[in-house]
């Protein structure tokens, strides 16, 4: 049916059509996917400033950041010492306490259990830190996992001290 020389031209035409068509479909699908990513209003709210003046030593507050709780704990001297004195080899996820804080007195971390995302209870558990009621993970005064199913320490968000009494999370 086909003569030979015609064939190569036809192949090129069809290949080009298919390729370009595939590119077009890909480019059309992207907006449908990207619309589910955080929109510009969500991204704009990604930082929160917190005033620390009201927090007494030993107390903590929980603030909402990106829809998740952030624990801000003003630690007492004994809690700091307890956190610093731990032998790293005992830890399932070894991290030094000083690597988890910017100022020793202030522990700022995402209040989300690294197991399956529940919010741990403060001043509970066997290590005077946090205890997750969902599946029994124990965290110490530095928010490090000590016992239970959670794989890693509680996450430290990006934050900075704007001044001595204010931090900006995100």
């Amino acid at each position: 049916m086909d003569e030979k020389p015609k064939k190569s031209k036809r192949d090129f035409l069809f290949t080009a059509s298919y390729t370009l068509g595939a590119v077009g479909i890909g480019a059309t699908i992207w907006p449908l996917i990207d619309q589910m990513n955080p929109d510009t209003s969500v991204k704009a709210l990604a930082t929160t400033e917190v005033d620390l003046t009201q927090i007494e030593p030993g107390n903590s507050i929980t603030v909402l950041w990106r829809g998740k709780p952030v624990f801000i704990k003003r630690r007492t001297q004994s809690e700091i010492e307890e956190a610093e004195s731990v032998n790293l080899t005992e830890l399932p996820h070894p991290e030094k306490d000083q690597d988890r804080v910017k100022k020793k007195e202030w522990l700022v971390m995402l209040g989300v259990c690294t197991h399956l995302g529940c919010v741990p209870l403060s001043d509970k558990g066997e290590y005077n830190g946090w205890f997750c009621p969902c599946h029994g993970s124990h965290y110490d005064t530095s928010g490090r996992i000590r016992k239970g199913p959670a794989p890693t320490n509680m996450e430290i968000p990006k934050y900075e001290f704007v001044n001595n009494n204010t931090i900006k999370i995100g």
Partner: peptide, 10 residues
């Protein structure tokens, strides 16, 4: 129209 990624297009 304003915030959602490609929202205006969709």
């Amino acid at each position: 129209m304003r915030d959602v990624n490609y929202g205006w297009l969709l």
